[in-house]
Design a binder for these strands. Structure first.
Lengths: 212, 212, 212, 212
DNA sequence: CATGAATGAGGATTCATTCAT
DNA sequence: GATGAATGAATCCTCATTCAT
């Protein structure tokens, strides 16, 4: 019955999303350190003490951003790359979803990687997220290898997967810096880098250092 | 037994190197923002005003670090990967030199990439350095392709090179985080990722998205 | 007996005045450069960040002082020297009000002139304020001259007015340095310097350099 | 017999003058606080320790500037206004010499007054110099009054002289700010302000406050 | 005589964070 | 629940001043 003005006394969940939106925006524009809680609060249209009450300290707030954006990204990928598809199909769909996400949420991507990578407090968080990706990729490769009757040392597998993830992140950076670039085209290029080599590996072709 | 009282009234060139050493160390441990000029000065065994007198502001100091470490790295690579070698040989030697450098100067690598990537003021500096690498790699691929009588769009070439550089940087990160890992082994793994795929490309094999 | 804990959580307007009071006091005692924001904040009974939050940087704070004191002074003069009075009466009342102000707010005067004059960043501010005074005085002279059927070159008028203002400022300095001196007596003396000469000018008497 | 390069190993007196030249220039451009000993030394073409060795601390250096410029000015005036001339002639010549000096050595004037006025450490020095001027002017007035068979209270005399000196300084400021203005014209204007009033005083005309 | 090297000390400014209303 | 008011604690940077060569 009360006629409270819109945008006031919103339920907590809504407020929190507003704050996270503002935080992601400001963190991605300014970077973690240069971002000020003042600016975030102002951008969220809320007073600073509210931000602290709802989402805690600056670090906690950043971690919350990381979580939200990371979860969104993983969901986008997981939803596209069903585990029962063949390896190349899975990889292709996953990459398409990934680059699509990056293209659509450049701010989120900037928060996730560009900022988090440099700041030690979040290295752990980031490592966890990346580890999940690496694990997925490594699992795909391993699965495909076993289907071919082959095997590869776990460490080698991990490192190769790590490299592929790194290449992908790098192209994501490139995409974030080229607003006009086409995400799907970028995914295709990544496939050409990743799959051609991986397919060789699957067929048992490997490279060895020369005698030197 | 030396007749010079160590650490006192050293000539400028020496002090500057000491300062850069300290700065690289502190920046790599703490990150650009969290690093304090006080700590850098103390670590260099000198007072703050000297740091300002010789190397300028904090940003200028960081750029100086970037330059020194970047130059060292490029020299290490250039010295190893002579341009007259065949492509795979050049790639292999370049990677070996690169991972060797990263393994030997983990602090320098951290300053170069992990820190610089996140901080906007240095994005430009870093982009320039990475662009040089990408250009070299792209040049190698292009050279090899032409030798095979093939060609590829410049943009595609750049993006593929970008991905390879990204994968390499990612493995370098991994190496920096695993002090016991063997640089040469890591280089071998990178070759397996990069060269197997690149060789396919060289032979005209490409991947195309399914009809969907 | 008051129910409000004095000096705590005061509204912004009140705190700003306290800060300005403190700033005027400290600036006038120490001079702009030698004054420290620490001392001003402490004198205002508040922490430094509040000063920055409300009044901005040291320069902006000084300008705020200049504005407040200058406005007060101009109001005191304007309130006393009604424009419809005869010239000598206006001049007398204006001078009385002016020296009364200086006698009552010696700190304010010191900030206004002694400090501002020396520091380049405020030369403009001060020049504007002095220009207003000069204009008023010149206007008075011009008005009186025209009433006598005479005229004088605008530049001459300005310079003469400038000299009168300078003489007045100088006596104000003298007054500020002699706490026991009587402001009204000082005003009378200034009239004897200013009016006797001005009256001659009004009657067409002028001095010309000898043939030499 | 030695062929030392010119401008090196100069006799002390010469070096000191070079330093003072540089100091006057820098102080007048930047103001006392903003001026740095580095800049002064560099401008003098000499190393900082030399400045300290010859002229002492920054304050002492400033005082030395004050002395040199003040002495030059007093000499210029004293040389022109011979004590045996009639009062108006003396005043006219003195003013001409004064404004001529200011016009010729704007830097010196800026150091003398604009800078020194604001900085407490030099208030005393300045007051002494101004007192000498005031004394001279007051002496002139007194001498002329007695010649007319009149007398005036010492304090009144001092204050009036103070006002005249103030007006003169003020016009000197104006002159320093208007590089194209003619010093002699300015002196004439000052005579019109000063002498017309003073002459009235000499003839026994005085102004008294209205009954109120 | 002359200077490059070196520093102690201090000041402006900013920010994350928390009360008291 | 919500906020204006308030601050402790750092951090960058500069400068007058002095050794040691």
């Amino acid at each position: 019955m009360s006629t409270v003005p819109a945008f006031k006394r919103l339920p907590r969940a809504v407020r929190e999303q507003q704050m996270l939106d503002a935080a992601v925006k400001v963190f991605s524009r300014r970077g973690f350190h240069a971002a000020s809680m003042d600016e975030i609060a102002e951008d969220a249209g809320i007073s600073k003490p509210m931000v602290y009450a709802y989402l805690g300290t600056k670090e906690e707030l950043f971690v919350a951003c990381l979580h939200r954006e990371g979860t969104r990204m993983m969901q986008a990928i997981a939803g596209a790359a069903a585990p029962d598809l063949p390896a190349d199909e899975r990889l292709w769909r996953g990459l398409k979803a990934f680059f699509g996400f990056v293209g659509a949420y450049r701010d989120g991507w900037a928060v996730l990687y560009r900022q988090a990578r440099g700041e030690q407090p979040f290295a752990g968080e980031l490592a966890t997220m990346r580890a999940r990706l690496v694990e997925v990729v490594a699992g795909m490769l391993d699965h495909a290898l076993r289907a071919e009757g082959r095997e590869i040392a776990a460490l080698d597998l991990e490192v190769v997967a790590y490299a592929l993830v790194g290449a992908t992140e790098s192209l994501a950076d490139w995409l974030a810096d080229h607003p006009d670039a086409d995400p799907e085209k970028t995914a295709t290029r990544m496939m050409n880098v990743a799959w051609l080599g991986a397919a060789q590996l699957l067929h048992g072709v490997t490279w060895h250092p020369p005698a030197d």
